[in-house]
């Protein structure tokens, strides 16, 4: 039976959907059977990030309310035969699904797939509780900003009280140069504050925008630093030990100048 991992964050716009799409694609690339579940009912986006928006017939609410069978609603990925998407409903609201329905749905999916990845909506309302209801593991995504880390802390607390223990942390959109210049919190600062295990760090990468434009996850782009970071995280999910990506910035003129005046 497979793992059900919810990808959550509290704050919106920190990269939950991008993370879900990339990790799912990386796991499918490694040969696992993977299903991505979009639980952001009313604001679905995982379909466009995956480039599957034109193939949707049925959605998650059709499944939970019995309008169709589960298999009819699953959309096969363009690239990988072992990767599927269960899209969110766009015209309903978050109360259209209940936590119990999600639990049953995840149980059914776990029988067919090695990994069930759940893309959680932003916020801490019912959508959040639906998304975590069927999960046995959690990944918390944050960015190196005060607001995002604060919300992540709140989410970690809520996950704990929902008995989803040991959530793993992804720090997204880190800018090594800004960290070096003391203008961005670094990995250590954030891990120190949130006090949960780090499962990966993703550098800011313009290729993410390009890949989202095209509907092709960056993890398939060998030249994308963020793609590389996601590939490493997918290995850690599978239980491998992989070192963190080297995010050192090359020597800038400022570094040389600093060394010249003996400040380093």
């Amino acid at each position: 039976m497979g793992d059900t991992i919810v990808v959550t964050s509290g704050k919106g716009g920190v990269g939950k959907t991008t993370t879900t799409a990339n990790l799912g694609t990386a796991l499918a690339f490694a040969g696992f059977r993977v299903v991505l579940v979009d639980t952001d009912i009313g604001l679905r986006n995982l379909d466009v990030v995956m480039g599957l928006e034109n193939r949707i017939v049925y959605d998650i609410v059709d499944v939970t309310s019995g309008n169709c069978r589960l298999k009819q609603a699953l959309i096969k990925d363009k690239r990988f035969d072992s990767l599927y998407l269960l899209p969110a409903a766009q015209t309903k609201d978050k109360t259209a699904v209940s936590p119990d329905e999600m639990r049953y749905l995840c149980e059914d999916l776990q029988e067919e797939f090695d990994y069930v990845l759940i893309d959680c909506p932003a916020g801490i309302e019912q959508g959040f509780y639906n998304a975590i209801a069927g999960a046995n593991k959690a990944i918390v995504v944050t960015t190196p900003e005060v607001s995002a880390v604060r919300d992540a802390d709140r989410i970690i607390g809520l996950l704990e009280s929902a008995e989803l223990r040991n959530p793993k942390l992804i720090i997204n959109r880190i800018r090594p140069r800004m960290v070096k210049h003391g203008d961005m919190m670094d990995i250590e600062d954030i891990v120190d504050i949130l006090a949960i295990d780090l499962i990966g760090v993703i550098p800011e990468d313009e290729k993410i925008i390009v890949s989202t434009n095209k509907g092709e996850p960056a993890v398939m782009d060998v030249l994308s630093p963020a793609g590389e970071a996601y590939r490493r995280i997918s290995k850690r999910i599978r239980g491998e030990e992989v070192p963190l990506m080297n995010l050192d910035v090359s020597n800038s003129i400022m570094d040389k100048l600093r060394r010249l005046v003996g400040m380093n």
């Binding site: 190196p144 003391g182 203008d183 961005m184 670094d186 100048l257 005046v261």
Partner: peptide, 17 residues
């Protein structure tokens, strides 16, 4: 030279804490 002691990183961490 980017060696300002009141770096915004420290600021952020302290406020967050």
């Amino acid at each position: 030279l980017g060696r300002d002691n009141s770096s915004s990183r420290k600021h952020a961490k302290e406020r967050l804490r």
